[in-house]
Structures are given as structure tokens and as C-alpha cells.
Amino acid sequence: MTVADLFAMPFMQRALIAAVVTGLAAPVVGTYLVQRRMALMGDGLGHVAVTGVALGLLTHTSPTWTAVIVAIAGALLVEVIRERANAGGDVALALLFYGGLAGGVFLTGLAGESAASLQSYLFGSITTIGIADVLATIILAVVVLVVGLGLAPQLFTVAQDQEFAAVAGLRVRFYNLLVAVLAAVTVTVAMRTVGLLLVSALMVVPVATSQQVTNSFRATLYGAMGLGLLASAGGLGISAVASFRVTVAPGPTIVLVALAFFLITWPLGAWMRRRRRLQEPFADLAAAEHTRVDEHAHEHGEDCGHLAVEHGDHVDYVHNGHRHAVHRVEGGHHYDEH
């Protein structure tokens, strides 16, 4: 069997659809969470959703929908706790998260299910996804995309500056709850793809990667969506190809591919930030004392290899910790050392 044959199989096609919609939707909510400096919110909601899955197993209903309901309830609770934020705010969140995980494992035991059935939700089982779950994933992902992109101006404003948003007449509380609910829905969408314990990675890592090289919100958002798509489709592909030789779980592979993108981009971002800082024009202040250098073995110019920085009406060349500026006078030139 070849790779092409593998992707012709219905279960692989369902997996690919789930991977694509998850990869697109998760970073949208992730961007708003990172903007609010709540990058770990998705992780916490993933823990809470474990209880939802267990409730589904216990009551023999669809774990996807019980997980949505419990995750939303958890997200609203988190938002209420955050609103009444006091010194113990994040401790309260921790209690909720561990309660969710422990409760989930406990209830699964009560349901008489093995740890293995919970494991497919904890780390994802994209290749065993059924038609009903694919449809549920698509519907939820579309909801996340439509709301997350359609209300982008409002969500951006509220996340950027709550007080300003309130005085602009936006219903801040509504939008906060909306982001919390979207995060909960996204957790459930990504549950089958990467699993509840790795959900947050697909929401946050593409954003962290994208913002290495962007300087606008819009570029970060769309960049993160593109990276999320590449990571989840690529991760699925890699695990499918590898499956001919070894057993590779798609969920962790997707997350590792997303992390690999970050590792590739990070030095690039660091280099871009450094270059921007170096090329920042020198302050155009009244001339301070400078040293005149008549003999200079090197002719500065474009592409001479020295960092060229704008300085008022001329260009300085940074050279051994000095700033050299050519000073052209009648019958020749010399360099000023600033």
C-alpha cells in the first residue's frame, strides 16, 4: 500500500478534514487568548473538559457534546473568577483545572471504562473519528471561525484595552464571556485531533510562531491560521507515512510539527528584532563634539559591510563602536567620528 492509497481510505479522509478545520480554528481563539496574556486558558479548559468526556462515557451519550457543555460551564466559571480577580485568582483557576482532570479520571472509573477509552480523548485519536464526530467538528469549527473573524474588531478592542472598550460603549462582559465560550468550543473541536492535554499547543504555538515575524494583529492572526493548518495537515501526513514502519500517534506529531515551526522562526524573529533595533535612526541632536579623522583606509558606502544608520541629513557607518560620517569639503573629504 502506498501513501496515496492510505489517503484514499475513508478514515484517512475524515482525519484530514478534521485536521484541516481544527488547524484553522484553534489559532483564531488562541490569538485572542495570547493577546489577553491567558495563553494557558486553553490548557485549563482542556483539563475541565476531561470531566465532560467522562460524563458522556458514564451516561452513554456523545462525549463530544458533554465535553462542550462542561467546558463552556468551566470557561464561564473561569471568567467569573477572573472578573472578581483578587490575589488568589490564579490559585482558584488551578483548583478548577485539577478538579476537572481528577474528576474526569474518577468518573471514567465509575463508568466501568478502561483508561484506554479516556486516553483517546486525552491525546487524540484522529484516525478513529466517525462521520458524526467529523460533522460535529466541522460545525463547531465553523462557528469559531465565523464569530472569531466576524467580530474581530470588537474582540481585538476588548482584549487590547478593556477600559477603553467599556468607555467606547462595548459590552465588555459579553465579549469576555464570548471569548471564554469560543475557547471552550475550540478545546472540544481539537479534542479528537490532538487530544485534551495538547489542545492548548495547537491554539498557542502557531500564534507564538507567527508573532515572531509580524508587527500587526491581522498578520499574526492569519499567519497563525496558516501555520495551524500546515502543522495539523503536515503532522497527520508525517504520522501516516511513518505508520508503515512504526506506530506514531498523529496528535503529538501535529504538536511537534507546530513546535518545529516555532524553532525555525524564532532565530529569524530574534534577528529581525535585533536588526530593527540597530537600524533605528540616531537622534538628530545638535552636533556634539566629534573627532576628525583624515586618514581612513576604508571607503564607506552602500554594501561596504558596515551597518548604515540614518542620522539627521546623512548616514553614519557603525565601525568598531564609532559612528563614522563622511564629511565632504572642497578638494576632498574626511571622516567625522561621532
Binding site: 496574556r37 481585538f156 484595552d161 508573532q211 509580524t214 500587526s216 494583529f217
Partner: peptide
Amino acid sequence: SGVPASVQE
């Protein structure tokens, strides 16, 4: 904030 935003945005 946590995500880059341009002056224009």
C-alpha cells in the same frame, strides 16, 4: 499587549 498590533490597528 500579548500579540503585536500596528499603530493603525
